[in-house]
């Protein structure tokens, strides 16, 4: 029984879905952190504390949300494809 489940998880379709769901969280955080870091270094370089940090932090958050949106669209597309295989094409 255990090995049946194991092989099911080894199926590429399931692995793909699990992986896409698993990467969403970190994609959002890492874009935010990179935006903050870029703004901080630009501020130190150009001497414009604290303006660029704020601007780039907001840009980073927006980029993070964009990443999440793209990932969830990918998940939904895979789901639609599976449904179309099972129930026929959606009208």
């Amino acid at each position: 029984m255990f090995f049946n489940n194991w092989f099911k998880i080894n199926d590429k379709k399931y692995l793909d879905a699990i992986s896409t769901a698993g990467v969403i969280g970190l994609h959002m955080v890492s874009a935010t952190v990179v935006g903050l870091g870029m703004g901080w270094y630009l501020d130190r370089w150009l001497g414009t504390k604290p303006w660029l940090t704020g601007v780039f932090l907001i840009l980073g958050i927006v980029a993070g949300f964009k990443n999440v949106w793209l990932d969830s669209r990918r998940l939904l597309k895979a789901q639609d494809k599976e449904d179309a295989e099972k129930f026929g094409p959606k009208d």
């Binding site: 994609h27 952190v33 990179v34 927006v62 980029a63």
Partner: peptide, 18 residues
Amino acid sequence: LPLELISHTARPLSLTLR
């Protein structure tokens, strides 16, 4: 342009940390 630059730079970071 800045949005895409940030999200592309975030890719190696998130790959590494995960």
